[in-house]
Design a protein around this nucleic acid. Structure first.
Length: 344
DNA sequence: AACCCGTGGTT
DNA sequence: TAACCAAGGGT
């Protein structure tokens, strides 16, 4: 059993993290959602801001989504935020306590359900995230990521679960994976469970498991314009979209083949807003990487003579540029604001 | 089952 | 620096 040495190491080396204080199911839940595919260092300030404004389920139940997404702004994977919001509406009485209830909530899958069970309720569950998975593959000396090997890892990690401290067992493995048994680097000499580790016995532990090959991401050319009228700018809200849902942005769209950026932005603004822009002014370009594609954005500023024929399907607003920080924007739009500010 | 879903960090 | 990783889930 590896759990005894693991827990001894944890008692000496555990990280001091905000969600490890004042522990309750609500705080564990919010932290786990924020931490999905997101580094601890990134999450900490977001978690603290969130708890300052929404310290419990009740306060969240009474909140407006526009205020919630503003807290989430910049954290990415915005459907997580929407899932929290709709989960809150589904929780009518107390916070769910069983696996079935937990996974039935939007945004909670197998990992998150089991981790909440172990950490918040001290159940004998093992939530296997990328840290635990990597440690399992290394302990067992497995390289190929296959269904069979995955099951071996699950069996190994569950077999070693601690009877007394199941939550600490989960967190000990996470801390070990993030400090000593990292993806690119290992510090095997300090590892409390190296004696049972087959990857340690090999010459190169970081080769376990074999890294996955990701496919190349496409890049798209985009044209975007700040539209200024009467000392205000136009922003519109992305709603009911899978991508950047609930966030505000400046209008624009893809540059078609054989089309200049200037022609594209005139066409896009006509299609989106029905405004006729005669002479958009080019301000600069922005590169940005999303999770599954990259963009090169040509940024313009436009001054319509009239907005009497304005027509937009989405929610939109004319705002003072100084009020922009009241709205949640994607990172790419913040890069645009940086260019705008440099003009002044 | 493969793809979609953000952003920042690491080698 | 391009590729890959980070407390995954939804479809």
């Amino acid at each position: 059993m590896i759990n005894q040495k693991l827990l001894e190491w944890f008692d000496q080396n555990k990280r001091n993290l905000p969600w490890r204080h004042g522990r309750n199911p609500y705080r564990v839940w919010i932290s786990e959602i924020m931490l999905q595919q997101t580094q601890v260092k990134t999450v900490i300030p977001y978690f603290n801001k969130w708890m300052e404004k929404y310290p419990n389920l009740e306060s969240l139940k009474n909140a407006k989504y526009d205020d919630i997404i503003k807290i989430w702004e910049g954290l990415g994977y915005y459907s997580r935020c929407k899932n929290i919001y709709s989960a809150v509406q589904k929780i009518t009485t107390s916070f769910p306590k069983t696996y079935e209830e937990l996974v039935s909530l939007p945004g909670i899958g197998d990992y998150t359900a089991k981790t909440i069970l172990a950490i918040a309720y001290n159940n004998q569950a093992v939530g296997i995230d990328t840290n635990l998975e990597r440690i399992g593959y290394r302990q067992l000396g497995l390289k190929a990521k296959s269904k069979r090997n995955q099951q071996r890892v699950i069996n190994f990690l569950e077999k070693n679960q601690s009877k007394d401290r199941p939550g600490d067992y989960n967190e000990a493995l996470m801390d070990l994976g993030s400090s000593l048994c990292k993806a690119y680097t290992t510090f095997c000499k300090q590892c409390p469970i190296k004696s049972s580790c087959k990857a340690f016995k090999s010459s190169s532990p970081t080769k376990y498991p074999t890294p996955k090959i990701s496919k190349k991401l496409p890049t798209y050319d985009i044209a975007v314009s700040v539209i200024k009228f009467d000392n205000r700018v136009l922003i519109s809200k992305r709603e009911n979209t899978k991508f950047l849902s609930g966030l505000w942005e400046f209008p624009g769209g893809k540059i078609e083949k054989n089309e200049s950026a200037e022609i594209a932005i005139i066409r896009e603004l006509k299609e989106e807003t029905n405004l006729n822009i005669k002479t958009p002014t080019y301000l600069g370009s922005i590169k940005h990487q999303y999770s599954h594609f990259g963009v090169n954005i040509a940024l313009f500023i436009s001054y319509p003579k009239s907005i009497s024929n304005l027509s937009i399907k989405q929610d939109y607003k004319w705002i003072q540029i100084d009020d922009i920080d009241k709205y949640a924007l994607p990172k790419a739009n913040h890069k645009m604001l940086d260019i705008l500010r440099k003009l002044d």
